[in-house]
């Protein structure tokens, strides 16, 4: 029997042609911090992290979850990297939702 699952916080960076002021890690962390603040949670409240990204070749960084793990507070936690081409934003949220619906985790941070 599936658990119920809700979106309890969202964060979105301001869209701009070029964000020369932050690194890739800084950009994803900015969105994650906004979502945590919106949910009134801290990094330690998060059980698992799901990151979506496609394709890797945009930034030239192979399997970027490896490099982005500490910026998203994933150290010591399960981290999944979703890659489903243009649908990756939606697919990433689906994988995160399944982690909660399956009862595996209570609070999951998902960033795309």
């Amino acid at each position: 029997m599936a658990e119920r699952c809700a979106v309890i916080g969202v964060g979105q960076t301001h869209h701009k042609a070029k964000r020369d002021d932050v690194s890739i890690a800084g950009l994803v962390r900015e969105a994650a911090k906004m979502a945590l603040a919106d949910a009134d949670l801290t990094w330690s409240d998060i059980d698992a992290v799901v990151i979506g990204k496609a394709p890797d070749m945009f930034e030239g960084n192979m399997m970027p979850e490896i490099y982005l793990a500490p910026a998203l507070g994933a150290v010591g936690k399960p981290m999944i990297r979703v890659h489903t081409a243009g649908s990756v934003g939606g697919s990433t949220a689906l994988v995160a939702a399944h982690l909660v619906k399956s009862g595996m985790h209570k609070r999951v941070l998902t960033v795309s």
């Binding site: 496609a54 890797d56 979850e65 999944i80 990297r81 890659h83 489903t84 399944h98 399956s102 009862g103």
Partner: peptide, 23 residues
């Protein structure tokens, strides 16, 4: 269908999580 840019062992984990839901 879904895909992870990870070893297939993690793809298996994603599928296993779905099977946990019982649907």
């Amino acid at each position: 269908e879904s895909h992870v840019e990870m070893d297939g062992a993690w793809a298996m984990y994603e599928a296993w999580v779905l099977l946990q839901e019982g649907e």
